[in-house]
């Protein structure tokens, strides 16, 4: 199928006997925004770790753009255009916001093994890095250390860094978690803006964000797919209501 960008076949991961992800077969349509929801401990982050090869699946296969990526290393997957963000905010705290984004742009040079050259050769990425920072509302923060930024801005910086790689597919792990209302709106608007030409798979707890943004939703509980479909279908599913919506919206 040409319009499937990412596919998993019975992907399973066990941690010393405990099955965190249990035969998950996902199929993500090219160009869609696909949500992965489910209660805490359902195995969503583990799925992301498997898809980006930070963890090796115990069983099953992963195909990206028709290519079997099950055996690849995480850095290789990233270079194929499948880039993740992390649930826990992942910036380089002692580098400036500009340097954070530039590190992603620097990847375009290939490997940066040139230890004899001045880092000034990276200045040519400054303009593009500033543009990306401006895009996420961080135009003031270029020279600030990433570790000093407030939480919402760290998340925005993370997205700017991920976007700097211009990935075909993004995996966002709870991009709005812990954010105030305004920051959530900003991130949602940002995701809308970056979506043309990309596919996004996101873990999201905020159901109004999911409703407004996502084309298709997969519900995971205890490592298994419970239901899949658009928001109306999924939210009408009786088991989903009891397993997830029921507890979250009680």
């Amino acid at each position: 199928m040409n319009d499937t960008i990412l596919e998993t076949q019975a992907m399973t991961r066990e941690f010393s006997g405990f099955v965190a992800v249990d035969g998950v077969s996902l199929s993500v349509r090219t160009g869609s925004i696909h949500a992965l929801i489910g209660p805490n401990g359902a195995g969503k982050t583990t799925c992301f770790n498997l898809l980006t090869k930070f963890l090796q699946p115990t069983r099953g296969r992963i195909l990206f753009k028709g290519r079997d990526i099950t055996g690849l290393a995480p850095a290789q997957v990233a270079r194929l255009g499948l880039v993740r963000s992390f649930q826990i905010s992942a910036v380089f705290p002692k580098l400036t916001a500009l340097e954070n984004v530039r590190l992603a742009l620097q990847r375009a040079r290939g490997a940066s093994f040139d230890f004899w050259r001045s880092e000034r050769v990276l200045d040519r990425y400054n303009e593009r890095a500033m543009a990306l920072l401006t895009d996420v509302g961080l135009d003031h923060a270029g020279d600030l250390l990433a570790g000093m930024l407030p939480y919402g801005q760290k998340r925005a910086l993370e997205i700017a860094t991920t976007l700097a790689l211009d990935p075909e597919m993004l995996l966002l792990d709870e991009p709005t978690a812990g954010m105030g209302h305004e920051d959530v709106e900003r991130i949602v608007a940002l995701i809308r803006r970056i979506r043309p030409g990309r596919t996004i798979l996101m873990v999201e707890h905020n159901l109004s964000v999911v409703e407004g943004l996502c084309d298709i939703i997969t519900v995971l509980t205890r490592g298994r797919v419970l239901a899949e479909g658009d928001y109306a279908t999924v939210s009408a599913h009786p088991e989903v209501i009891s397993a997830y919506l029921g507890t979250a919206h009680a």
Binding site: T52, F54, P74, A75, A78, R79, V83, R84, S85, F86, A90, V91, F92, P93, K94, L95, E99, R102, L103, A104, Q106, R107, S112, F115, E119, L122, T161, L165
Partner: peptide, 18 residues
């Protein structure tokens, strides 16, 4: 050196950038 510092700061993130 920039890449080295990023590894020191957050190695999984550096990996995820490729």
């Amino acid at each position: 050196g920039q890449v080295l510092k990023s590894i020191r700061e957050n190695e999984p993130r550096a990996t995820s950038l490729g």
